[in-house]
Design a protein around this nucleic acid. Sequence first.
DNA 1: GCCGTTTTGCAACGATTGTTGCGAAGGCCG
DNA 2: CGGCCTTCGCAACAATCGTTGCAAAACGGC
Lengths: 290, 290
Amino acid sequence: MSTVSAPENYEDLIRLIHERHDEMSKTYQRIAVYLTQNPNEVAVHSVNAIAARCGIHASSFVRFAQSLGYQGFKELQALFQKRLATAAPGFEARVRALETELKVREDRSEAGFLRDLVVRDIASLQDLLERISPAEIETAAEMIEKAETVFLVGQLRSAPVVDLLRYILTMLGKRCVLLDPSGGLATHMARTMKASDVLIAVSFRFYANEVVNIADEAGAAGVPLVAITDSTLSPLAKSARVLFAVPEHDYSFSRSLAAPMCLAQALTVAVAARLQKDGNSPRIPTVTGT
Amino acid sequence: MSTVSAPENYEDLIRLIHERHDEMSKTYQRIAVYLTQNPNEVAVHSVNAIAARCGIHASSFVRFAQSLGYQGFKELQALFQKRLATAAPGFEARVRALETELKVREDRSEAGFLRDLVVRDIASLQDLLERISPAEIETAAEMIEKAETVFLVGQLRSAPVVDLLRYILTMLGKRCVLLDPSGGLATHMARTMKASDVLIAVSFRFYANEVVNIADEAGAAGVPLVAITDSTLSPLAKSARVLFAVPEHDYSFSRSLAAPMCLAQALTVAVAARLQKDGNSPRIPTVTGT
DNA sequence: GCCGTTTTGCAACGATTGTTGCGAAGGCCG
DNA sequence: CGGCCTTCGCAACAATCGTTGCAAAACGGC
């Protein structure tokens, strides 16, 4: 390691970390990511605390700092601390804004849509928490766990939700079949469902015909149905064994998917817990992203 | 000193210090002034360092804290640290704050995973708000608006995000091509991209090879790239014209998609606003769900 | 599949930090 | 002016923290 380096300010340090990132070892890369992503935590806590939080030994942090030209981790940490103390002029104001609990501000047009969307999504999530009972999740999870095959339907705006469900459930070792409209076979594939399977249908206004039909047929055929929709008055309601009515909040032209996505994850976590408890699944409990 | 006090958050502490200020001894008053006027320094440095800077012995600081009901100075300092951690990019502390804020009952096992997931998602969203600047969104939106065709890549866990993007952008009248791995043609289709198009790549650890390769090739071929990923250290970073680094936070085996999904929506809203302003799109501005 | 290299975790060391007992300095009232 | 009480600094203690040497493990090349 060329000891000529050792940046003396935060920005240069971050830049150096980015440069060297690719040629670092796996653990060092994780450290690099943590440092860049949690600069405040780094400034405030001790090496041991930080290391424990990433599941890496403290000594690796020290060596990481040394490989960058510092004498120890303390020296590197000092840069993070100086950054906080010397933070931009807007910083103190932001702190105070948060302290006074003022989440929504006036910068409507300037700060742009993002703030509005975030606020909306948060509201959706809080709403979700109040409307969904753990018992329902447990019931649905049990159905999914016991199912031979999990069938999934959801079109257009609901597609991302079923996509996520399919991904995680598959990783958990459940057999999943996506009733994809693009092949044109969805309805016919749906007719192959049996009572020992389970159907998860996701649909919001205006409820896609195909999804509603599949749900109805499933109900008639005795296939258990878990429905994620927007109202207890939804056309999915009558056939559903478990019905999740998640709140819907519009913003300009699109609706929030935060609540249904979160609910979907909650479902998968519940299923995973059951699988693990029953020792049914020898699969890795850690699903990795992409 | 009534030991019934000992505030548990920064604001209450400052309030208490102000209340007691007048009846304090001279040195304690100087301490009080320093603490309230240099909260950042207090959070970062050691007692000795702080004490030295005011010309007061460290033990006085300890006793000061004890007179307020704490066991030692460390305990008081922790409040200053939490304040910094919750003020700026800092996820962990925010989760802790939210957990107590969202009136967490004992129902750990009962209320189940849902509450934890909601808390995590909300924290992710708040984090998102602080990390993404409106300017970046505008830049990306402009790229998307001007693009002849929008190409989309994202696999596994990222698939829901690109799914959503494809859906809304298509509804807005943009021509979208999804580089879907299931056909096996993704890489080859990617080679048909031109500089007048735009590529939106979504990928998180561990970055799928195919996505990274496509992004790299696009960068080399001069195709503008908008990347949604988890770190500025991501392999997508070097080719990206706009890079959205949204934080990633684990919960048991799955990571939150709340932030990327919200960001995706924000992007589409920004694009929609541009299309409408320029009168480029005669399409209905109201996308309906399903 | 083996061996040399790198990488990583563990344990012990030294250094630093936070805390406390004690005594001196300073202020207040008699 | 003197005695008592509060207040403060010093120095020693215990705990924690950062660092490093060493050995095991993982990795890569042959």
